[in-house]
Nucleic acid binder design. Structure first.
Lengths: 247, 247
DNA sequence: GAAAAACCTTGATGTGTATCAAGGGGGCAT
DNA sequence: ATGCCCCCTTGATACACATCAAGGTTTTTC
């Protein structure tokens, strides 16, 4: 109904897989952060860009041999694991500039699956090469340690959310998280399209679809939010913050 | 009532802070794993051992400047973070051989607090030195990446547990986790003392104390477990596995 | 472009765990 | 030892969210 994702219309990066790390507009939030010019060029050499994957396609499956981590260049993915009883648990959503796949390092097997929520382009970073380069470039090594550490703290935030917060607080927290991640990418913090289904949201937040839907309706009634299918407009971010209770 | 923790009675390691990495009996599950003899000696030089901390004392507080990660040598700790509304969330329990503090790397601030659940001795590993040594020793770098990755996958397991599992399943999963971690340390997998309170267990599992207590009672009634205050004896591990539903 | 499938919303009812309440027991300090 | 405090257990009640149900809408498929 409304226009395409703004990402698609920007000039560098986006789905274009000929871009390099040096001119990628995401490099301030991706791996090259804080690297010198020559360092970026070295990193650029190990990064493999491939053509976009379609919605619903997998970047990797749980149990696959781990070889690379991935940086999202455009689009969005979800990561999920399957329990022994066959239920799925969504463990994260990944937007442009974010890194995924690090959970595969410990056992050399991917601990989760990654699936595109829309047409998505990624940079593949072979882990062996990243390790070697890290040993030579202290700032890269540090940066990668930091990225892994951030994944840990974000997982811990989700643990807290699931353990202590109501349905309303959980949904509010997710909206605020997506909003601030959009802002970091210089996109609107108040109007955006949710790339994932209500099912995925519910799964991620430990709620049923029905509950998620009801919370959206309530927030709309309170005039905190304008919801139109997957299009979201935040009308009162302070109101949502007050619901979220997580500052 | 029963004897002291077996840990206290073993000869090397334990609370003895003159032990070194080379002869520490935990080194097969701690950082030195897979290091060559000389490498272990180099690691040993940066590791700082101090005298044990008492029950209730903090190893670090949330918000403290991050300088080191820690390996548990004896005893046990819990890690927790405080939400803006003042509630605590226990994010993990740490036993001998396990590493904690990695959540502080991303912002140079500890993202959680660590508190001793009983008298506890740790090895402090200054992160700057660890970084430098990692750049020189590929196997150490890899091993530390793996340890961080394992923390991520364990957090994701907890996320799944909190999101999808009943009170009974959560408690069963924790008991099995502690049991297998004991086994890894060559201690009994079926008889052990829980160092943490029911309050901590409930907090970690997203349950109230009352619910945890009721689950223990039910498991005892089913003769899966013998509970005597903090002493646990697993009578039917298959029974507990069937409750846990997480293999 | 029509049919099918998947997704979303809203309402009615059920249930697992929280909350409230009260009593018992263990461990620590003095 | 003794007393206090914190922890643990058990029971009664309440509630938030799950489940069941049904209809509407969007997206996919052919």
């Amino acid at each position: 109904m409304t226009g395409q994702s703004q990402e698609l219309l920007t000039k560098p990066c986006a789905h274009d897989y000929k871009v390099n790390c040096g001119n990628c507009r995401l490099n301030s939030i991706c791996l090259p952060l804080a690297l010198e010019r020559d360092d970026v060029e070295q990193l650029d050499e190990i990064v493999q860009r491939s053509k976009p994957i379609q919605k619903g396609r997998f970047l990797y499956h749980e149990g696959d041999e781990f070889q690379s981590v991935f940086a999202v260049r455009s689009g969005a993915l979800k990561a999920f694991r399957t329990t022994d009883s066959g239920r799925e648990q969504v463990t994260g959503f990944y937007f442009p500039g974010e890194i995924l796949g690090m959970d595969g390092i410990s056992n050399n097997l991917h601990a989760s699956s990654a699936q595109a929520l829309e047409t998505t382009a990624v940079c593949e970073i072979p882990f062996n090469s990243l390790e070697k380069l890290s040993a030579l470039m202290p700032s890269l090594q540090r940066h990668f340690f930091q990225i892994m550490s951030r994944e840990i703290t974000e997982d811990q935030q989700l643990i807290t959310l699931l353990s202590k917060n109501s349905a309303e607080e959980r949904v509010a927290a997710l909206i605020l998280s997506i909003s601030s991640r959009n802002a970091r990418r210089k996109l609107s913090a108040t109007r955006f399209r949710l790339p994932m289904s209500r099912i995925d949201i519910g799964n991620y937040l430990g709620l049923t679809v029905e509950t998620v839907s009801r919370v959206f309706s309530r927030m709309q009634k309170l005039e905190f939010l304008q919801v139109n299918n997957k299009e979201i407009e935040i009308k009162d971010i302070e109101g949502i913050r007050s619901l979220a209770d997580i500052g």
